[in-house]
Every structure is written in C-alpha cells, then in structure tokens.
Simulated scan of single mutants.
Amino acid sequence: MHINFPLILVIAVAVAGLLALLDLVWLAPRRRRVIAAYQAQVDTPDPQTLERLDKEPLLVEYGKSFFPVLAVVLILRSFLVEPFQIPSGSMKPTLEVGDFILVNKFAYGIRLPVVDTKVFDVGDPQRGDVMVFRYPNEPRINYIKRVIGLPGDHIRYADKQLYVNGEPVPRDLMRTEPDDEVPPGHPLQSLAKVDIYEEYLEDSAHLIRHKRLSQPARPQEWLVPEGHYFMIGDNRDNSNDSRYWQSDQMPRELWGMVPDNYIVGKAFAVWMHWPEPKLSNLPSFSSISLIH
C-alpha cells in the first residue's frame, strides 16, 4: 500500500484553512457579540467569564495553529525542494541504499501538487541529470535514474557500451572492487568483481558500475519520442530502467521511457545516509554531497 502523501497534505491544508476561515468569518464575530452583550449587562465583567466567552473551540484552535505550518510545508514540498530516500542499489555508485536526497521541484517547471500539471515552464531535463519520476507502470511509486536520451535521440546499448546518436559515450576505468551485491557464502563471491568507470555524457562526468560476471544483453536501440526521456541507472547491470522488460506474472510489459508529465524533479544533493532507520543505528551525515 502506497500512501499518497501529497494528497493527504493538500487535504490537511484545506481543512485547517477552512477552520481558520470559519473562525474569521463567523465564530470570532459571534464571540465578540456575546462578549459585548455580557459587558452591557454587568457593571464589572468577570475576567474568567470573559476568557471563557472568548475561548476558541478546540478544533478551530488546532486548525489555526497548524494551518501556517502545513501551508509552508506544502509550498516547500510541492514547488521548491522535496526529500526522498533511496530504497535500492540501481544508482550505485552515485547513490547508495539508505541515502536521503533532496530534489529540486522547480528545475523542470512548476507543477500543481497531486495532479502534477505543469503551470509554468522553467527548463527541460538535460543528458546526465539525475531525475526523480513517477514509475510509468505504477505512478504512485517514485523512481530515480539518470537522463540518457532526450526527445528525438537515438540510443543504442551493445556489449555494455552506451551510444547516443551514433557516438559511443566516452568512459575511463577508475578501479575494480569486490561486488557487494553478491550474498555472503555464494560460490562465486570471491570471483565477483565490479568495474567502476567514469562516464562522460556531454558536460556531465559521473561514475557507473559494471559487473564482470554478468553477460552482456543483446544489442538494443531505441528512438526517444517527443515528450519522453530515456532513463538508465548507474548500476548498469542491476537496474530496472528504460532498457528492460518488466514483469510481475504475465503478460510482460515494457515500461519504456518517461513522459514529461511523470517528472518529479532533479536530484541535487545527498544530505544524510541511514540504511536502517532505527535508534540502534544512527544516521550518518559524513556523506553530505552534491549529486553529479
């Protein structure tokens, strides 16, 4: 079950705002009239009686108290910056499981909360951006991958080499290390290695990861349609992205490319690492960094 937090937040703001408006328009003037009538009937008004007559209903008091806080959270989260947690290793080594990231919500345009309709255009995704988007097969779930193909691009992936518009994307081998995704005790654990490359995608330089033991998939190529983006994870051999078939049971379904109206925002910073949120395992702030 996926909780629609934006919808809950919008409803909470609306309810709190209506309670505050109700008090402003009807309840507060009514209290003032009652107080004025009481003061006209007595020579020396009792302070405790005045306080009781002027007391707001508890629900209204809570609504008025929470409304500005909820409204600020809604504005920040919907139009400026939203936090996310990385649940999988599909973006390793750029992002690790348990990283808490910040996402710029206005980098690609101002969108209305809940309905995600763009109302003001700011910019478009660029090759190399790390982007959060709604998973096309289940829009309630957020995914994060790297933008590889823009509308009109021709993308090819063959023998673990990425090509954009016919040109191989340059990369340099940086290091080789043990594959930490192989379970302990696995017969191939000692042989499982990953190559870490620095890949250069136009002005973007970022790290990617290839498993040495995994076999290259058959060569594939795609043409990115208008209004869509081709997304790939930096963990190239362990990422469900625009390259692959996705299947629960049957039939198989290709989720393919990400339409513009499913874009959430641009990831720009890691602000905390907490792989297992619990009191016995405190978060780490040593990995605070910008996302490239």
Rank of each mutant, 00 (worst) to 15 (best):
L70N: 02
R52W: 11
N261E: 14
H273D: 06
K160I: 02
G256R: 02
Q246D: 10
R175L: 00
P68M: 11
L7N: 12
D124R: 13
R212Q: 13
V164L: 11
S286V: 04
F100W: 15
T117Y: 11
R252Y: 05
Q161H: 14
S78R: 07
P168I: 03
M250G: 14
I288W: 15
E276R: 13
L112P: 10
D241T: 00
S88F: 01
R134T: 07
F5T: 04
V42P: 13
N104P: 10
R31L: 04
A107E: 13
R77L: 15
G128V: 04
G265Q: 09
L80S: 04
M174W: 08
S289T: 00
R33P: 01
K55S: 06
L18Q: 05
P29A: 05
R127E: 04
P183I: 11
H292V: 05
I155R: 07
E96L: 08
A192P: 11
L74W: 08
W271G: 00
P125A: 10
V15F: 03
R243F: 01
M257F: 01
Y197S: 11
R127C: 00
S242H: 01
Y143E: 02
N137Y: 08
S190Y: 10
L22H: 04
A217S: 12
D179R: 01
Y262L: 12
I11D: 03
H228E: 14
S284P: 00
Y262V: 00
N261Y: 14
V147F: 00
T44D: 09
G233H: 00
K160E: 03
D99C: 01
P225H: 05
W255Y: 14
D260F: 09
Q246V: 09
L95R: 02
K278L: 02
V60Y: 07
H2C: 03
L80I: 12
Y244V: 00
E276G: 07
Q161D: 13
D237V: 02
E276T: 13
A269L: 12
V103W: 12
L58A: 15
L223N: 14
P168G: 08
A269R: 07
A269H: 06
A40Q: 06
R127S: 04
I144C: 04
E276M: 12
L188Y: 02
S286C: 02
M1G: 10
P219W: 01
